[in-house]
Simulated assay, not measured.
Amino acid sequence: MDRRMTAAAIRRLGDEALAREPSLGTLLGRLADAVDDGRATEAEGYIGAIDARGLAELLAGAHSRFWAVLEVLRNVLVFAPIAVTWFGLSLAAGAYADMLAARPDLVSQPFLLLWEQGFGGRLLFNFGTLALIDASLIGILILLSFTLHLRSELTDVAFQTSVLLKESEIRAVLGQASSLGALDVSGPDAEAILADMAAEERRIYERASEREG
């Protein structure tokens, strides 16, 4: 693979990354230009800034915005029932105090009963409504957790295999960029780098095959 072919391979990776993470796509595009033009120092800096594993996860779809939003929503909802309950209790306590101030004879009535009755119209939502809101939030939380867990269980092996294979492709391309004169490596050193990259690619492929099997 010559310099031009290596640059083209890097540009293809950049095009894939551009839709998911524009900054990485731009970085890969600049690396391709540096490799194509033989700008050794610049290419070396770009290659050092690229995390092959992270890029592979990105291109394989690890950072789906939809699932990321669902996960954030699930994490936030963990605290929602507690927040809603204490907010409701604070309102109920205020309404209860106002009601007793107006009608001291109701002091013997159970707090929850008065709350369920709306404290004589002083509170918009009663105890049953608050309980329903809490139950709904907990139900949504359970559903989100189950959905995220199911997705993880069903896609984890296939996804990890895809990531490993993509990582091997990225490392191979970066290895070519490092060895085919982009970084001004001499013959024996270039051969050593290529040998190391080939061995690494074989190890990654074997790990992917084991996971897939």
Rank of each mutant, 00 (worst) to 15 (best):
R3W: 04
R3L: 09
A9Y: 14
A9I: 06
E16N: 12
E16D: 15
A17V: 02
S23L: 13
L28V: 03
A34F: 08
A34T: 07
G38M: 02
E42G: 06
I47K: 09
A52V: 04
A52H: 04
E57P: 01
L58F: 06
R65Q: 11
W67G: 01
V72K: 03
V72P: 08
V76G: 05
V78I: 15
P81Q: 02
I82P: 04
V84S: 02
S90R: 13
Y96R: 15
D98V: 05
D98P: 12
M99K: 10
A102S: 05
L106T: 01
S108K: 15
L112P: 10
E116W: 11
Q117N: 01
Q117P: 09
A135G: 06
R151G: 05
S152Q: 12
D156Q: 12
D156A: 15
V157D: 00
T161W: 09
L165K: 04
K166I: 02
E169N: 04
G175M: 03
A177W: 02
A177R: 04
S179M: 00
L183K: 09
L183R: 15
S186N: 13
D189Y: 04
A192M: 07
A192S: 03
L194A: 08
M197F: 12
E201H: 03
R203H: 15
R203Q: 14
R207Y: 11
E210R: 15
E212A: 15
